[in-house]
Simulated scan of single mutants.
Amino acid sequence: MNNQIDVVIIGRNEAKHLARCIASVRASNGVQLGSIIYVDSDSADDSCAIATRAGCRLVSLQSGRMSAARARNAGFSLSDAGYVMFLDGDTVLHPDFLAQASQAMQGSVAVVWGHRRELAPHSSWYIRMLDMDWIYAPGETAFCGGDALFRRSALLQSGGFCAELIAGEEPELCARIRAGGGTILHADIPMTLHDLGIHSFAAYWKRAIRAGHAYAEVSGLCRRQGRELWRHEVQKNYLRALQLPLLLAAAVASCLQPHALLMLILLLAMPVRAVLRCRYKSGSVWIRAQYILHSYLQLMAIAAGQSRFYLMQRCGVRSRLIEYRSGGDHENRI
C-alpha cells in the first residue's frame, strides 16, 4: 500500500493563520509526506498567495455554494497518496501526529483523529469553555471532527464528503464509512491546536446556531436517504434547551411562592448531576459549573439553529455559509 500522506488544508480568509499551519505540516516527523494541497473558498485576503509561496498545490473556489465539504472534496480529488489528512487553515498540526496516527491504521480502522485543543484557551471565557468541548474519551467513536487522517480507499469507497451539506459533513461521512465496515478511532495522542478566536457573545451564539443547523440538515438528509442519524438528538436538543429557562423560572417562582421551592430543588438536581458527571473535563468544580452553564446556553442556540433551518426550508430558501468570526478572520465552516 502507498504509505504517503497528502495533507488537504481548507480555508477562507486565513491569511493570519495559514503560513503557520503549512509550516506545522512540513515539520511532521517520521512520515512520507506527499502533497500539501490548499483549497481556498473565495478569500478576500492574500491566502492564495501565501499558499503558493509556501509551495502548496492550490485550488481556488471562486463561485458556487461555499462549504467545508466542497473544499475537502476538491482537495481530496487531487490526492493519490494512501492516506489523506484534512486540516482547517487555523490549526497547528502536532509534529508527531501523522506518524502515530498512520501506525494506528490497523485492521478495519479507516479514520484516526487525536486531541484538538485551543491555542489560547485563556484569552476569553468563550474559548475556555469551547476548549473543554474538544475533550473526548479515546477509543472507537461514531464520528470525527474536521481534523482527521483518512484512508484514501475509505474516502473513495464512501464517495467522500456530501457537498450538499454546509455543516455536519464529518458525522455524515463517518456514518457511511462505518456502514461500509470501517472504524473511526479517537487515538489518545495530541493532534492539533486550534485558533478559535471567539471574543464576543454574538460570535459564540452564532457558532452554536451553526451546530443546530448541522443537526437539522444532516438528520433530514439521512432520513430522505432511508438512514438514521441525529433524529433523536434533534428532538432531545429541543427538550434540553428548556432546562435553563425552567430553572430560572423556578428560581423566581420560589421567591414568590414557598411551595415552588420543591420544584426548584428538583430542577437543580439536573445541573448538579451534570457537574459531577463531567469530572473528566476539569478537576475544578467551579470550572465544571461554568461549563454546564455554557452547555445550557449552547443548547438554547442549537435549538434556535434547528428552528432556523426548518423555517428556511419551509420558505424554500437554501442555506449559505454562516461565518461566526468577523472581518478578515473567517473560518471556512458554516
Results as ranks from 00 to 15, higher is better:
128 R>S: 06
128 R>E: 12
131 D>V: 00
132 M>N: 06
136 Y>M: 09
136 Y>H: 11
138 P>Y: 05
140 E>T: 13
142 A>E: 15
146 G>W: 04
147 D>V: 06
149 L>G: 02
150 F>D: 00
150 F>S: 02
151 R>W: 01
151 R>D: 05
151 R>A: 09
152 R>Y: 13
155 L>E: 02
156 L>G: 01
156 L>N: 05
157 Q>Y: 09
157 Q>F: 09
162 C>P: 09
163 A>K: 12
166 I>P: 07
168 G>A: 06
169 E>C: 08
169 E>W: 06
172 E>K: 06
173 L>Y: 08
174 C>N: 13
175 A>C: 13
176 R>I: 05
178 R>H: 04
178 R>Q: 07
178 R>E: 01
183 T>N: 11
187 A>L: 11
187 A>S: 07
192 T>W: 05
193 L>G: 07
193 L>D: 09
193 L>F: 05
194 H>A: 10
196 L>I: 06
196 L>C: 03
197 G>K: 00
199 H>I: 03
203 A>Y: 00
203 A>E: 10
204 Y>F: 10
206 K>R: 14
207 R>I: 05
209 I>Q: 00
211 A>M: 13
214 A>Y: 11
214 A>W: 05
216 A>W: 05
216 A>D: 05
217 E>R: 09
220 G>M: 04
221 L>V: 10
221 L>C: 03
222 C>A: 09
222 C>L: 08
225 Q>G: 11
225 Q>D: 15
228 E>T: 14
229 L>N: 09
230 W>K: 08
230 W>P: 00
231 R>N: 09
235 Q>Y: 04
235 Q>K: 08
236 K>R: 15
240 R>N: 10
241 A>M: 03
242 L>H: 07
242 L>Q: 15
246 L>E: 15
246 L>P: 11
247 L>C: 08
249 A>M: 13
250 A>I: 04
252 V>E: 12
260 A>N: 09
261 L>H: 08
262 L>F: 15
265 I>Q: 15
266 L>F: 10
